[in-house]
Design a binder for these strands. Structure first.
Length: 481
RNA sequence: UCCUCAGUAGCUCAGUUGGUUAGAGCACCUGACUGUUAAUCAGGGGGUCGUAGGUUCAAGUCCUACCUGGGGAGCCA
């Protein structure tokens, strides 16, 4: 009877040798001589390859010739203890079938290391590299852990709409959704676009946040979270921004800002612990990769911690919590401020710049920082207004190297205050009637936050460009694949 | 969008004050080698120097515009 296919991960861990096995996967390298060939085979189940040993005399010459880097194989053989160092077990091949060859003169991936920029241009094949295999296995583990975390905490996963009719979030430029003929757009008598003829009969956009809808769910289900794609049509060209990214947005009834911060910190620590418990092989590979990369860097650019040390470090202590006002004081009394080193001067009321956030997180506190109680003028309309009349119950969590990883707030639950803020900020009330009604009927104090999924993955993997932690990045002028 | 650096072989890069036939490592192909680990050793093929224009007797090298990519900034997650 035909042996059933095993994942390479299981074979490598197997203590049971001298048995028939079947492995399927893609060739990473082939080495050898006239008598014996060694093929490193990978099937994505683990970063490690299994070594397939081929007694050349037993196989067709053409078959051996066609086993090149990138080719896909079906290997039947005996799992045996390895005679050489480097691996504990290997497959002594009895039968090999080539599913698909990979012309070695054209195959874009080599056994040697490629730059991440080059691999980005061949995103359809970059999964086949060690680095991206590790990154996307970790990405999966983090997505799974998020659902597990919230499920264990009795949160409900709520699917908020991708297409939205309101443009009130103010979270950035939106992508328009329309079936109107762009060559012949229907106009009203006033000469404006006639959206009543459009698919939804009104102007619609891709979502920039599921928060407002999640709030609606929380006012009945208590604790909900969303986890879905989010779209921002900003012309952002940085290693931290995408036009299409994934966001986790929990929303909790009866949570104040402190409960909110507790949850956010607990969740981040849970996720990092989950990665350490479940992705050690991949993390170790990425750590070594970073160490290799840093060898070529000047001393002052080298990080003082390895990837694993960085992850452990986050778990060790409580995050630092302080108010925006306290943070401004820290910054004003800082060395760079006194020496005039900040490009943007520090003054109460400003939005903190990257350089300020970096100073707080990387120089002053040297650990994650949660800032609360921001000036209301630099924050969104829905945030809970403090009694001082100047600040709102907003919180941002800042991570070393990443910057803002979470942004959230307690929400304004008092109808009059919320309505006043909406009109103050010039948001059309007709778009917000449903949101306001939750404050009219059985309103409750509630809170929530948004976690940028890719920014979490950046931190956990130690990668430095957000385009390398999402399979198919969408950025200005780039929607290939 | 702004600032800045870069674009030379399949990949990573070198190429002097402008000067004759543009180089290296790796990859690939051929050969050698009875257990390799980024295998090793010998040989071979491979280039519209990002694109378009300009300066010059002469441009990979200088100038202009555009395209693409990296880093920084803004917007944010």
């Amino acid at each position: 009877m035909e042996q059933r296919r095993s994942f390479i991960k299981e074979l490598l861990q197997s203590k049971e040798v001298d048995r028939d096995v079947n492995a399927k996967g893609w060739v990473r390298t082939k080495r050898g001589n006239k008598q014996v060939a060694f093929v490193a085979l990978n099937d994505g189940s683990t970063i490690h390859n299994i070594q397939v040993v081929i007694d050349v005399a037993k196989f067709d010459e053409n078959l051996i010739k066609n086993i090149t880097t990138g080719a896909s194989l079906n290997v039947h053989g005996t799992l045996v203890r390895s005679l050489a160092q480097g691996q504990s077990v290997e497959i002594q091949a009895n039968k090999i079938e080539i599913y698909g060859v990979a012309d070695p003169e054209k195959y874009p991936l080599q056994k040697k290391r490629h730059s991440l920029e080059y691999l980005r241009e061949i995103a359809h094949l970059r999964f086949r590299t060690n680095t991206f295999g590790a990154v996307f296995r970790i990405r999966h583990a983090m997505a799974f852990a998020i659902h597990k975390y919230f499920n264990d905490k009795k949160f409900y996963y709520l699917h908020t709409p991708i297409v939205t009719g309101s443009d009130a979030e103010g979270a950035g430029e939106m992508f328009k959704v329309s079936t109107l003929d762009l060559e012949n757009i229907p106009k009203t008598e006033k000469g404006e676009i006639n959206y009543t003829e459009d698919f939804f009969g009104k102007e619609t956009n891709l979502t920039v946040s599921g928060q407002l809808e999640a709030e609606l769910g929380a006012t009945a289900l208590s604790n909900v979270y969303t986890f879905g794609p989010t779209f921002r049509a900003e012309n952002s060209n940085t290693p931290r921004h995408l036009a299409e990214f994934w966001m986790i947005e929990p929303e909790m009834a009866f949570y104040d800002i402190h409960d909110n911060m507790d949850l956010a910190e607990d969740m981040l620590k849970y996720l990092i612990q989950y990665a350490l418990d479940n992705c050690m092989d991949d993390l170790k590979f990425l750590e070594n990769r970073l160490i290799e990369e840093e060898k070529n860097k000047p001393q002052n650019e080298k990080s003082d911690m390895t990837l694993l040390e960085k992850l452990e470090f986050i778990l060790k202590d409580d995050f630092v919590r302080l108010t925006y006002t306290e943070a401004i004081d820290v910054l004003k009394n800082s060395k760079p401020a006194k020496k005039g080193k900040f490009q943007f001067p520090v003054e109460w009321g400003i939005d903190l710049q990257s350089e300020h956030e970096r100073y707080l997180v990387e120089k002053h506190f040297k650990k994650p920082v949660i800032l609360v109680d921001y000036p209301k003028d630099i924050k969104a309309f829905y945030m809970k207004q403090n009694d001082d009349g100047k600040t709102v119950r907003a919180m941002d969590i800042l991570f070393p190297g990443i910057g803002e990883i979470i942004g959230g707030s307690q929400r304004e639950e008092v109808y009059e205050k919320l309505a006043a803020r909406i009109s103050e900020m010039g948001i059309p009330e007709r778009d917000m009637w449903w949101y306001l009604e939750t404050r009219m009927y059985g309103t409750v104090p509630h809170s929530g936050f948004g976690l940028g999924f890719e920014r979490l993955i950046l931190f956990v993997t130690g990668m430095s460009n957000i385009r390398d932690v999402i399979p198919f990045p969408r950025t200005p002028k780039n929607a290939e694949f």
